[in-house]
Amino acid sequence: GKMTGIVKWFNADKGFGFITPDDGSKDVFVHFSAIQNDGYKSLDEGQKVSFTIESGAKGPAAGNVTSL
């Protein structure tokens, strides 16, 4: 299901970062391709987001990332 969290950091040049889930679980990798907006796909440190957990090739990653 949907989770919420805070963006820990995001490197716009490399197109990835990490989200710290509100439930205290392990930080989740986020790739820019998972960001659900029409414009420039980037996130800001400290931004609140909702997301799902998808299993990627390198382990769990955030999917369906939407800013709240």
Rank of each mutant, 00 (worst) to 15 (best):
G1W: 06
G1T: 10
G1K: 05
K2V: 15
K2M: 15
K2P: 15
K2C: 06
M3G: 05
M3K: 11
T4Q: 08
T4W: 08
T4N: 08
G5D: 00
I6A: 07
I6H: 11
I6G: 03
V7H: 00
V7I: 08
K8Y: 04
K8L: 07
W9D: 02
W9Q: 03
W9T: 03
F10T: 02
N11T: 05
A12N: 12
A12I: 14
A12P: 11
A12L: 11
D13I: 15
D13A: 15
K14R: 13
K14H: 10
K14A: 11
F16I: 11
G17W: 01
G17S: 01
F18G: 02
F18K: 04
F18P: 00
F18N: 02
I19M: 02
I19G: 00
T20E: 08
T20I: 15
P21T: 06
P21M: 06
D22R: 05
D22I: 08
D22M: 10
D23V: 07
G24S: 07
G24W: 07
K26W: 09
D27T: 06
V28R: 02
V28K: 03
F29Q: 02
F29N: 02
F29E: 02
F29G: 01
F29W: 08
V30N: 00
V30C: 05
V30H: 00
H31G: 04
H31Q: 04
H31I: 04
H31W: 04
H31T: 04
F32I: 11
S33D: 04
S33K: 11
S33A: 08
S33G: 07
S33T: 12
A34R: 06
A34D: 07
A34P: 02
I35S: 03
I35D: 02
Q36L: 13
Q36G: 09
Q36K: 12
N37M: 15
N37I: 15
D38I: 08
D38K: 12
D38Y: 10
D38W: 09
D38A: 12
G39W: 06
G39N: 11
G39Q: 10
G39K: 13
Y40C: 09
Y40L: 11
Y40P: 13
S42E: 08
S42T: 15
S42N: 09
S42Q: 12
L43P: 02
L43A: 02
E45I: 14
E45M: 15
G46C: 05
G46S: 05
G46K: 05
G46P: 01
G46V: 02
Q47G: 07
Q47R: 07
Q47L: 07
K48S: 10
V49Q: 01
V49N: 00
S50T: 11
S50E: 13
F51Y: 11
T52F: 10
T52W: 08
I53D: 02
I53M: 12
E54L: 11
E54G: 07
E54S: 09
E54A: 09
S55R: 11
S55P: 12
S55H: 12
A57W: 13
A57H: 15
A57Q: 14
K58C: 06
G59N: 07
G59D: 04
G59W: 07
P60L: 14
P60H: 09
A61W: 15
A62N: 01
A62E: 01
A62L: 02
A62C: 04
A62V: 03
G63D: 08
N64I: 08
N64W: 09
N64V: 07
V65S: 01
V65K: 01
T66A: 10
S67I: 15
S67T: 14
S67G: 11
S67D: 11
L68P: 06
L68N: 10
